[in-house]
Amino acid sequence: MVMIDFWSLGVTLQLRISLDKTGLTKSNSQSNSTMPNRQKLASTLKQGETGVIDGFSNEGLSLKLLEMGLLPGSEITLVRSAPMGDPLYFHVAGYNLSLRKDEASTVLLR
């Protein structure tokens, strides 16, 4: 049987997610106006570029993305974008996943 310390994991996670949330709202508003490149997002990856997931800025969507295997610490590569620039085509967690640009912008990279 595999054992794991759930309690500590849960606590650190919750801390990190709530931190991310606050940090994120800030970075989003900044990226839209004055400082566009401060926080790297999955949506700002260039074609063929790989980033490492740090956290998420949208709680509801993050639940879905986590279930799809987009875990903090895992790599995400932009394979290409759709003909009209949106949605985006990623390689992540061993498979290909399509996210809209605004969805990808909730994935924060290290």
Partner: peptide
Amino acid sequence: GQSFQAAETIARYSVISKL
């Protein structure tokens, strides 16, 4: 409810990684 889901998913993935 929702606030536990993220932690649960990550915990499960860590079990899965070991398996």
